[in-house]
Amino acid sequence: MRIPIFFPALALVLLGGRAAQAQDVGPRQLGAPPTMPPPARPRTAPAPRQLDAVPVAPPDTTRRATVTTPLPGPMSAPAPVYAPTPPGRLPGNNTRAARFQVGLKNGLVYNASDVETKTPLFGRSYLLLDGQRKFDLNEVGFYEDETGHYVRTTLPGSSRESTLRRDKTGRISLYSITTSQYSSGPGGFGYPGYGGYGYGGYGMGGMGYPYNGYRTVKTEYFSKDNGPIQSLSTRNLMLATSDNAGAQQLLMESRRYQQITVGSYVVGGGLLIAGLLQSLQPTDNGRSISPMVYAAIPVLIVPIVLQSKQASNQRQAIALYNAGK
């Protein structure tokens, strides 16, 4: 029979497998605990990837410095510069450092504590520095004194040099000349730009005050970037400030005021002349003042108001251009 042979063969196979396993493990001592299989080797985890640059906040040392810094001590009194003033004497001294400059056309510059302009009755005008050194005005390019800064240059349309006072500095600097003129009678109605009210450079016409005697006339000019002197007119300013839109807008309004001013002078002057001629003609009731004379008065007052606005717009345009806005 085949069954009895199958069971002995299966038993031999099982016993042979256990013997081989016991031989691999090694001999075990008697009374020792059973040997456990060696634990599996742990896998090392990969190191975390770091960023290229990690922002690190700076250490807060402000509070620490505030706490550890000692409090400042009392301020020491300033050292005396001069000796105490005796009774009956003025404090300080009566000397002063050189504070004025005189520049000649040859490039030399002199410092002086006192500069005076001398205009003798006979002879040429000259500058007197500290009461000792004299310079003819034809040799001087600029000078300073108690009243301001002056330059010597030629005016537009003239070959003779004149002395101009600098009133305002900037990319557009303002200069002026002040002269005295004699008026022998009631002043006529001035035209723009011819010095009525003493503002010839601004085109300020006027009534020619005062009616008798001397009057002061101030004629103004300007220079852009220290260039040649130009007459202060709306047209010249528009050319000089062509790269500034804000200044151009103000000067456009100034030119409109100027046009209205000229028209008012023409209309008012025509009414006044016609009224005077009509008043001189005899009538049945005798001579009387023509109504056109009264009508000319308010028309001639309009330029006085508009000229102040025109001058104000020119000043604002210059200030805006110098500010670079």
Rank of each mutant, 00 (worst) to 15 (best):
G196S: 07
P33T: 02
P46K: 14
T163N: 15
G208D: 01
L12Q: 06
P70R: 03
L108V: 10
L128R: 11
T261K: 00
A296G: 10
L271P: 00
F189D: 05
S242E: 07
S290N: 02
R63Y: 11
G148E: 06
Q316T: 11
G157C: 02
S242H: 15
D136T: 02
P210C: 01
Y221E: 00
L121N: 13
G324E: 06
V102C: 01
A83D: 01
P303H: 07
P120A: 05
I3A: 15
N106F: 06
L280E: 10
P87E: 13
D145I: 08
A295S: 10
G16I: 09
A112E: 04
L164W: 10
Q278D: 03
P192E: 02
G73D: 10
R2M: 06
V293F: 11
D243E: 13
V266G: 00
L300W: 00
F142D: 13
G198Y: 04
R256F: 14
G148K: 05
N322A: 04
P192C: 06
G195C: 11
T234N: 10
G187E: 03
D145H: 03
P87A: 12
Y257G: 00
S173H: 06
P78G: 00
L129D: 03
L251A: 01
P70Q: 07
Q281L: 05
A311K: 04
A311R: 01
F100N: 07
V217R: 08
D60S: 14
R315C: 01
H149W: 14
Y221I: 00
A22C: 03
L251W: 03
T117D: 06
A11Q: 15
N212H: 12
Q316H: 13
S312P: 05
Y209M: 11
A47N: 07
G268F: 01
G92I: 00
R18D: 05
Q50W: 11
P55L: 14
M252Y: 14
D145F: 10
L276P: 03
I260Q: 05
A45H: 14
S176H: 13
E253T: 12
I289V: 14
A40E: 09
T62Y: 13
G188K: 06
I273M: 10
R235M: 11
N285L: 09
P192S: 05
P39L: 09
I177Q: 13
E161D: 10
P42Y: 09
Q307E: 13
A245S: 12
Y265K: 02
R28P: 05
G195I: 11
G206R: 02
E116Q: 12
F142G: 08
L237M: 03
